[in-house]
Design a protein around this nucleic acid. Structure first.
Lengths: 249, 249
DNA sequence: GCAACTTTGTGCGTGCCTTCACAAGCGACT
DNA sequence: AGTCGCTTGTGAAGGCACGCACAAAGTTGC
């Protein structure tokens, strides 16, 4: 949904800042989390094969992904987890805290505000906004919900770098404009709308209804295929590597 | 994240069931929603350029996407919206209702259960599950929360075709196994875990922390680029598709 | 110190997706 | 009826990503 940039400039490459494919960045974040879990279990090194097994990624692809952030592996041994984690965090910008603003504290927004997976991972939700007078003023997780009008002021005060939009569809574009006007350059959009913004603003979209429709398509495909009596196996997920983490409850 | 299957069989192609690229399916769902909005505004036809503007997609790509489901456009005019919507719904399997089961009625799960975007779009949430005794038995939107143990029985009774997992990470794999054992073949996973399942099961993952980390990467990249004093203007997004639709709210 | 084994890093072929550009088709106007 | 303008549908080219397979590099054992 987000567009693949023809990223990178030469000067940028000279710094530690290489042109990393968008698809790889998404996986790097995944590696980082799994490395965290491995570290908790007491591991000090991982091989690309192990980590690939846990993350469901092809080992070669994984190594190539890691090579984008520099060579931190030891041949014959694997990767030292702590060093790799540090480097990943640096690359993903987690060495600086990212203040997150959440706009729209309705059904979904309320859940996002309370989601522990954010604050625990370096993304403290720093500001909450809504238009509903019944919501403005209440506390969620210790944060006061402010009125949307206060976005410019508060975002500036608290150094917000990432905005999340969880409003109803029709309100989303207006909120987006407000955020962009306040200097926010990265937005995560949950509203079912395609946002328009200047090209320097990075927008990612999470569309739950679309996700379900994609699955519904597969259900339908399967049903039709069965009616046909055609073979048509699914083979979606490739990886049967049950290797390390059984991880039952 | 989900792997592109080497979809399609010849018999399947003979029926209305063509091999549609995974990436296209995702966009088809998007087109469908936007068409719905256009129809509400009273439009009867759209050109590929208009629809492309609204959805932020390249017009040629859009036409190719639509060509996968058959040619329903009229040259010189555009697409008749009602016919196109019908065909899209058929392709995406929305002509049959999809019963959805949601496992994990915690923070996020509760929000998902109450999200009107699902039921309103042909995805009635038909069953809710959790392990927490405080939650089992309560009603959400008129649905009783059942214990996870009841998954096999209830999924069979209610003909569940799609499962959503919104449990904490460690519980997710167990729930996944239960769902798969109950005949569910399509799963939407919100838990921060890579699920292992047989290849015939289609799994999609929505990972909120990863989404934020991807954005954080862009924040970091931007900061580093600025420190460099390098030129490196925005050009992250390609996305200049402001072409036709100003489409302000 | 040498040999055998392990694991990383990467060059390269392959296939999918995107995008351009144009011919074919349809309607409107004269 | 004929012409003109507009829009679809698609062939072909380019780019990106994936994954194989191998050389380079390090470790362990003798």
């Amino acid at each position: 949904m987000t567009k693949p940039p023809q990223a990178g400039s030469e000067d940028a490459a000279a710094a530690g800042l290489r042109a990393i494919p968008e698809a790889s960045v998404a996986r790097l974040a995944l590696y980082l989390r799994m490395l965290g879990e491995l570290a908790e279990q007491g591991a000090e090194t991982v091989s690309s094969d192990e980590l690939a097994g846990v993350t469901g990624v092809n080992p070669a692809k994984l190594r190539k992904d890691l090579s984008y952030i520099g060579s931190y592996g030891i041949r014959g041994v694997g990767y030292e987890i702590s060093a790799l984690v540090r480097q990943l965090e640096r690359t993903l910008g987690l060495d600086h805290l990212q203040a997150v603003a959440l706009v729209g504290v309705g059904n979904l927004g309320h859940a996002l505000a309370g989601y522990s997976g954010f604050g625990g991972r370096g993304f403290p939700v720093t500001a909450l906004f809504d238009v509903d007078p019944d919501l403005v003023g209440i506390h969620i997780n210790g944060i006061i919900v402010e009125h949307v009008q206060a976005i410019p002021q508060i975002c500036a005060e608290r150094g917000v770098t990432i905005g999340m939009i969880a409003t109803p569809g029709p309100a989303a574009q207006g909120v987006c404009d407000l955020l962009v006007g306040s200097g926010v350059r990265c937005i995560l959009n949950f509203a079912p709308v395609v946002l328009q913004a200047p090209p320097e603003v990075e927008i990612r979209k999470v569309d739950l209804a679309v996700e379900l429709q994609i699955l519904a398509f597969h259900v339908a495909r399967r049903r039709l295929a069965q009616q046909d009596g055609a073979v048509l196996d699914g083979q979606v997920n490739g990886h049967a590597t049950n290797g390390s983490g059984g991880m039952l409850t």
